[in-house]
Design a protein around this nucleic acid. Structure first.
Lengths: 235, 235
DNA sequence: CGCGTTGGTGAACGTTGTTCACTCCAGCGG
DNA sequence: CCGCTGGAGTGAACAACGTTCACCAACGCG
């Protein structure tokens, strides 16, 4: 079970390894000194080589940062999925996952800022990626989306949208629902988006420090938002 | 009424004028190409001078950016105040001001990102400014805070917090309330913070493009949030 | 008139991302 | 075992960046 069958030609394994080391070093520099501190020479220095060597692994600094973004999305999604799937009741799955999202953001402010902060031209944001996202954010989006599918299937909940839905919005949401396989209704998709907007917004506000002028721990404010959302979802 | 009394020694006026031109040029570059495009040489070039000349007006690029941030906060606060104070009913003042915030953000994405995006070490974020903010964000914060004071004074509204308030939170909120003159109760301050978290969050989500994977106009989602907040405030 | 403060320049330094010519060694075929 | 090919890594170099310095020109005051 250890290395009976090495179909990977060793050379590529080493290559992949240093590639991973490079993004790991980049991440260290990011948390230590912000995105401006993640310098090709510093990255290279951390594994004892020089800057131009990086170009054997990435086309540019930007490409390296994009890979870092990808890996962070993956890490976050993995973490949230383990939390989500460890919980028993639907309510717990929703509440604990949402709390975990906030806690990951606060424990990894720099990374969160890179993933979800103001989009910088060049740094591959899920959003700036040509309108529709690549599969980068897909896994992440699925974390809550699955919960809403489950929520809709156990249908004795009040899954309604309270306002008139314009034709334009309806068509866009329909397109979106189709793009993910048509597994939910338009109303549930709207609830999903609204819920995401609210959770992300609360986490964003606190993580970026826009509550710090009054309070240094937004936990109770977040709990209130969460309670409110859960109520609206009938949880 | 034109220039009967010029107590400003002309020299300082010119100085202030080019200083303003510099931050205006910086802003243009910001919206054109993101914060990385705002280069000392480019700024200087736009008013026909060379980069070192800027140091006669600002200590560093960072200082210039901070001044830009200040001026943007001022512009935004001015705009919101005119909208707010033009409205008649309290409900209108709240709703129209909130809509105006979203619209300013969408019409000035780059500037909004600089003001409210992920804090960059160095760029004087209201938040990173040593915990408590300077008077920079103060005027801005007052925009909604005044509405909540008004809301509390016309007291036949349900101004209650629905969850237990921990001693730690209570003490922090009390400190904050005192720091602004003790004009509101702890519960109203909490409602204010919760409301701010929600509005900022919604605007942030949309402006940073984290709704774009499904919809390209978040207006109706925002209206739903706004309706919800207004209901909770008894408007 | 003279003279100092102020605004502006050009050259320069150190650091950044990136390119290029070059070396070097691992791993393969004969 | 030799020879070679190709990938990994280096050092020098370039342009652009923020910043500093010595210098200069011009305006306004006494």
């Amino acid at each position: 079970m250890t290395d009976v069958k090495p179909p990977v030609p060793r050379r590529e394994r080493l290559r992949a390894a240093t590639q991973d080391e490079l993004v790991a070093a980049a991440r260290e520099l990011l948390v230590a000194g912000g995105v401006d501190a993640v310098t090709l020479r510093s990255i290279a220095g951390q594994l004892g080589m020089t800057a131009p060597a990086i170009y054997r692994y990435f086309d540019s600094r930007e490409a390296l940062l994009n890979t870092l973004v990808d890996s962070l999305y993956d890490e976050l999604a993995d973490y949230l999925l383990t939390v989500r799937d460890a919980a028993q009741s639907l309510t717990d799955r929703f509440v604990l996952t949402s709390r975990a999202f906030r806690e990951w953001a606060l424990a990894h402010r720099a990374e969160f800022g890179l993933l979800f902060g103001a989009p910088v031209p060049g740094v591959g944001h899920a959003a700036t990626e040509g309108g529709k996202d690549t599969d980068r954010g897909m896994r992440f989006a699925r974390v809550w989306l699955d919960l809403f599918i489950e929520l809709a299937e156990s249908n004795n909940r009040p899954m309604t949208w309270r306002r008139p839905i314009s034709a334009a919005l309806n068509s866009q949401i329909t397109d979106y629902v189709n793009s993910i396989g048509g597994v939910v209704s338009v109303e549930v998709a709207l609830l999903y988006l609204s819920c995401w907007e609210r959770l992300y917004g609360a986490v964003c506000t606190e993580t970026f420090g826009h509550l710090a002028f009054a309070v240094d721990d937004g936990a109770e404010l977040f709990e209130d938002q969460l309670l409110d959302v859960a109520e609206r979802l009938g949880l």
